[in-house]
C-alpha cells in the first residue's frame, strides 16, 4: 500500500498487467518514448520495449481499428486516445466494429480491447480537450463504459477492463490525474465493472454521480445540511441499478449530477429507470444537474459551464422541498 495519484495508479495498472500477461500492450500517439502527454504510460517502453509500448502514427481511426484487429488476433491492446474529444475519427471503428465483432462473427472473433482517454474539463485546455462523452458510448450495445474518480478505483477498474472479454471505453477525468493522492495497494487487484460505490451514506436524498462530478457532488452533500447519500457509479455501462434503487427506496429522493450536457446525458437513463422501478418510493420529482447544452467553452467560461457544488446544492435543496 502506498499513496498514489490517479495517473500513477493507471500507470501501475498497465505495468502490472503487462508483467502478468504478455499479450497486453499499450499503443497510441506519444505513448511510447514520451510516455503519453499526461505520462500515463511513462516508463512502459523502457520496461517492455517498442513492441509492447507502441508509438503509432497520428490517426485515431487506425489506432482503434488496428487495436480491434490485434485483439481479434489474440492480443490485449490498451489503446490510448490523447483526449476524449479526439476519439471521433475512431467512432465508426468502435461502434460498427468493436462493439459488434462478437455478434457478427457469432463468437468466432472477439475484441478484448480497452480504449483509454482523458475526459472532462477543469484543466483550462484547448477546444476538444474537455468533453465528457460517456453517454455516446453507453448508448452502444456491446461497449462497456467505465469512468473512475479515485486512484484506488482507477487501478482496480483498469485491471478489470484489461481482463474483460469485450471492448471497454475507459474515460479518465484529467482534472483528477494529479489532484490528490490515495492509498492504493501495490499488488494487483480488480474491481468488477458495474458496481457502484457509496461515497457518503445518507437518508434524506440519493445523489448519483460519476467521474469528474464526484468531488463537487461530495462537496455539495457536505454543505447541504441534509443527510445525502452520494453514489459514485464508476461504471456507466453496465451501471449499478440495484445500488441506486435500494438507495432511492431508502431516501425517497434522487438527484443525478454529471458534467456532460444535460440533454440526452446518462442521467436521463437513470431517471427513467428509477421512475419506472421505484415510482412509489419517490417523495418528489427526480432532478438532474448537467452542463448546459452548449459546446464545451474555452477556458474563461469553463467554470460557468461545469456544474458547480452550488448548482448541485440547489438541486439538493429543491428536491428536499418537493
Amino acid at each position: 500500500m502506498s499513496e498514489k495519484t490517479l495517473i500513477a495508479a493507471i500507470n501501475e495498472a498497465m505495468c502490472q498487467e503487462m508483467e502478468r500477461d504478455p499479450t497486453v500492450l499499450v499503443m497510441g500517439e506519444d505513448v511510447g518514448l514520451d510516455g503519453g502527454v499526461f505520462r500515463a504510460t511513462d516508463g512502459l517502453q523502457g520496461k517492455f520495449g517498442t513492441n509492447r509500448s507502441i508509438d503509432t502514427p497520428l490517426a485515431e481511426s487506425a489506432i482503434v481499428g488496428t487495436a480491434i484487429g490485434m485483439a481479434a488476433g489474440g492480443l490485449r491492446p490498451v489503446a490510448e486516445i490523447q483526449f476524449a474529444g479526439f476519439i471521433l475519427p475512431g467512432f465508426n471503428q468502435l461502434i460498427n466494429h468493436a462493439a459488434r465483432l462478437r455478434m457478427r462473427s457469432q463468437g468466432q472473433f472477439t475484441c478484448p480491447l480497452v480504449v483509454r482517454a482523458p475526459c472532462s474539463g477543469g484543466i483550462r485546455a484547448l477546444e476538444h480537450h474537455s468533453e465528457s462523452p460517456e453517454a455516446l458510448y453507453a448508448h452502444v450495445p456491446g461497449l462497456k463504459v467505465v469512468v473512475p474518480s479515485t486512484p484506488f478505483d482507477a487501478k482496480g477498474l483498469l485491471v478489470q477492463s484489461i481482463r474483460e472479454p469485450d471492448p471497454v471505453i475507459f474515460l479518465e477525468p484529467s482534472k483528477y490525474y494529479r489532484a490528490f493522492k490515495q492509498d492504493v495497494p501495490d499488488e494487483l487487484y480488480a474491481i468488477p465493472l458495474g458496481q457502484g460505490e457509496v461515497r457518503i451514506e445518507g437518508t434524506d436524498l440519493t445523489l448519483v454521480t460519476w467521474g469528474s462530478m464526484v468531488r463537487p457532488a461530495m462537496q455539495a452533500a457536505a454543505d447541504s445540511g441534509k443527510s445525502v447519500e452520494v453514489i459514485d457509479l464508476r461504471s456507466i455501462s453496465p451501471w449499478d441499478k440495484e445500488m441506486v434503487l435500494n438507495s432511492v427506496r431508502k431516501t425517497g429522493r434522487l438527484v443525478i449530477a454529471h458534467e456532460a450536457p444535460l440533454s440526452g446525458g446518462f442521467g436521463a437513463e437513470i431517471a427513467a429507470t428509477v421512475a419506472q422501478e421505484a415510482m412509489y418510493d419517490l417523495k418528489g420529482p427526480i432532478l438532474r444537474v448537467g452542463a448546459y447544452d452548449v459546446p464545451f467553452p474555452l477556458a474563461r467560461r469553463e467554470d460557468f459551464y461545469i456544474p458547480s457544488p452550488q448548482r448541485i446544492g440547489k438541486a439538493i435543496q429543491t428536491a428536499c422541498e418537493g
Binding site: 444535460l262 440533454s263 448546459y292 447544452d293 452548449v294 467553452p297 474563461r300 467560461r301 460557468f304
Partner: peptide, 20 residues
C-alpha cells in the same frame, strides 16, 4: 459568461433559452 449560449444555433430552441 452567458455569451456561451450564443452561436449554438441561429435561434435558440426553447429548452436552451430556458437554460440561459
Amino acid at each position: 459568461p452567458e455569451a456561451m449560449f450564443d452561436f449554438v444555433f441561429e435561434k435558440r430552441p426553447p429548452s436552451l433559452q430556458a437554460q440561459r
